[in-house]
Design a binder for these strands. Structure first.
Lengths: 244, 244
DNA sequence: TCAAAAGTGTTCTACTTACACCCATGG
DNA sequence: CCATGGGTGTAAGTAGAACACTTTTGA
């Protein structure tokens, strides 16, 4: 389990990722249960190698866990309080995992590294949950999607981070056409509306929403979607190829 | 000149500040000429001490140079490209200042510190230019206000930073009532309008602007401002005390 | 009494919201 | 032919832009 390569990493700096997905009318967030005894739930996170940009670092963290290559990713805040360190987490960790207490030179060095105050760059990501192939990194005991509205207690300030990420998402969803990142390539108007309703936690009027979307001029209407239900079949849409 | 206290500082991390002021219908930015031979112009910047938050660090950098205690300050972007380092700057620096080349243990240690790749957290600040008492730090040869539209070449990616700071300012000015931070406590409607015109680089209609401002409900009308000009005297306004 | 600049009211327009109707689908 | 859900058109309401007019000030 490689979690410590101090020379290759920027010290005291971490990347924390709030990964949003969408399923069954719910906004979801990917949460990792850490690979230790005790219920330590956390955002997928990692450190920055000397030879990668912070964006590349965030991409690496995400690609490792989701298998996705193309991911919408956006930095949204730096968390830099002066007492922001792992000490509380590590005290709990050692209480549940006494065998992890450092007992040699190497362990102490690692402890020193983790004992320092950390600055964290918060990223949020939007993924099509159906394309994700969850893949635990060495740090993860399990990876699981949680409803954004029913997030458990996370370590550190990760609950605060999800709140701030959510606010950033709300601010940017509409203007930057982010909603489509949460859906498959082909989707119905109802589906994209439900994404909006999940993100903004309020209903939209069907007809006005459709008009607004079509007026954006970025959607291409495809064939109808016949589901076998006894009602009119909706159209599929996709982002116009010219709209990257 | 203390510019290097590696143990007390977070390594590979800096804070760069784009400080906006307003004077004579112009948006201004505070630029430092570095205290070396050669024309090195830069944003006021500094590093983060272990025992201060990143916000406190930015405040310290600003307070040192402007004398102001209360400053509107906002992080807006993290610059973290993988090749983001001082090497190009230092090559030029040594060309103009060969005596700075390290010639002892201490100098080499410092060189090592500065040779690494740096992550920079960009802050922008808004100040009342009349309240500012410019005060050079040890790093500054001089401090000067430049028109935002006529910024000289700055070291590093500092020109890019001012552009990004400017965009962030435009996005936030209106919603967060930031314009008033650029003005004295008492101001006329024309003055705040001219701030807006400077920031958005376009004219506003006098009457509509006044209506919009008053409809915000945050302004309190004070006495008239008699200037001696042969025209109707405008009112002074201030932010309502209840609007912090 | 006049020019300049400030204050205020009114219309016009564009966009959002709300309501209404019609159409396709499979039972 | 009916219930259900999808597509579209139109009226009402609201916010901002544009225009017009009045008031104050000192020369």
């Amino acid at each position: 389990m490689r979690i410590y390569e101090a020379d290759e990493l920027i010290s005291q700096l971490s990347i924390d990722c709030t990964i949003f997905g969408y399923q069954e009318k719910r906004l979801k967030v990917l949460i990792s249960q850490l690979n230790f005894k005790g219920d330590f739930l956390a955002l997928p996170a990692g450190f920055v190698y000397q030879n990668e940009s912070i964006d590349q670092s965030a991409h690496r963290i995400l690609t490792e866990r989701t298998g996705l290559k193309e991911i919408y990713l956006q930095q949204f805040w730096v968390f830099g309080e002066k007492d922001r360190n792992y000490s509380k987490f590590m005290a709990q960790l050692f209480a549940f995992n006494p065998e992890l207490k450092p007992n040699d030179e190497m362990g102490n060095e690692r402890l020193t590294w983790f004992s320092k105050r950390f600055i964290s760059i918060g990223y949020y990501a939007l993924v099509d949950i159906n394309k994700v192939q969850l893949n635990k990194s060495g740090l993860d005991h399990s990876l699981e999607w949680y409803d954004f509205n029913e997030l458990p207690d996370l370590i550190f300030d990760h609950n605060e981070q999800t709140s701030k990420a959510y606010r950033a998402l709300q601010l940017n969803l509409d203007e930057n056409l982010l909603g489509f990142n949460l859906l498959p390539d082909k989707f119905t108007m109802k589906e994209i509306q439900q994404v909006y309703e999940a993100v903004y936690d309020r209903p939209f009027r069907r007809n006005n929403f459709q008009k607004k979307m079509l007026d954006l001029g970025v959607l291409e209407r495809l064939e109808k979607k016949y589901t076998g239900a006894n009602n009119k079949a909706p159209y599929f849409y996709r982002l116009k190829p010219s709209t990257p």
